[in-house]
Design a protein around this nucleic acid. Sequence first.
DNA 1: ACATTGACCTACA
DNA 2: TTGTAGGCCAATG
Length: 112
Amino acid sequence: MKKKNNSERSDFFDKVYEVVARIPYGRVTTYGAIAEFCGVKSAARTVGWALNGAKETGLPCHRVVNRFGALTGKQHFGAPELMRDLLKSEGVEFDSDNNVIMKEYLWHPDED
DNA sequence: ACATTGACCTACA
DNA sequence: TTGTAGGCCAATG
């Protein structure tokens, strides 16, 4: 808490993993929401990077979508249809644009 | 060591 | 209203 050279820096990633792991079943959240919960709302990009390693850590990164509900990171799952299938398997519905219905399934970290 | 990119979002002109 | 620019943290070339 005194030095923010190496400890707090990794804390951001750590928080991201924590929030993603807290996403309820059949719910989705946005990068901005996670970044905001981490304290830096403008660091949505960094959240994406965190998820890059998150898939290797075993976190449900498929429940994280952009603010439009579009599965922007589906390409990173190795199988673009996998992400959509996983969400559908959890009961999440999509609209005509292949986007998650945020209005119904959007979840916020502070909501839990 | 510097510059660029990357699963994004908000603000200003 | 649409378009452009900036910002955030980390990894890679």
